[in-house]
Design a protein around this nucleic acid. Sequence first.
DNA 1: TCACATTTGTACGTATGTATC
DNA 2: AGATACATACGTACAAATGTG
Lengths: 77, 77
Amino acid sequence: MSVDHEGDVPPYLQIAALIRARIDSGELAPGKPVPSVAQIVGEYGVARTTAQKALWVLRDEGLVRMVKGWGTFVAER
Amino acid sequence: MSVDHEGDVPPYLQIAALIRARIDSGELAPGKPVPSVAQIVGEYGVARTTAQKALWVLRDEGLVRMVKGWGTFVAER
DNA sequence: TCACATTTGTACGTATGTATC
DNA sequence: AGATACATACGTACAAATGTG
């Protein structure tokens, strides 16, 4: 999967949607780590800030928990 | 008022708190504009991204409404 | 209609701090 | 001590929407 820079959906929302889909499908189970900021940067070729923003969307939705020095994980619920 | 770069509260949260206080006190009434990103930059000497982040905090709290091309306003409620 | 200024939205890159492993 | 990872902050650029003249 890769992001589309031409469409009207900004990359950070596309990336958030991709990860959200993997959570909803169960591929990324509660407690499991989601891609790190660095991994997103490498995988989708976006800037670090854009990768962070994608994770912030999921965090604000309560889907993931971001823990400094540890990582970002699918929320337990 | 100015931000403290030494304390343990990051500048973007300090700025958010200052604006929140002005809303809570009624100085900034519902429907009225709050300081724009550019004004925050000029007033507190922070980067644009930091000023934005302060407003995002208030937006996420439902205290303000940010409208592209127009400005940021105290939410009506 | 058009041009312009203002304002928020998005995105890039970089640096430093802090916490965990 | 070192590597990894998130948090914060800096600066910059362009896009998109709005209002005004």
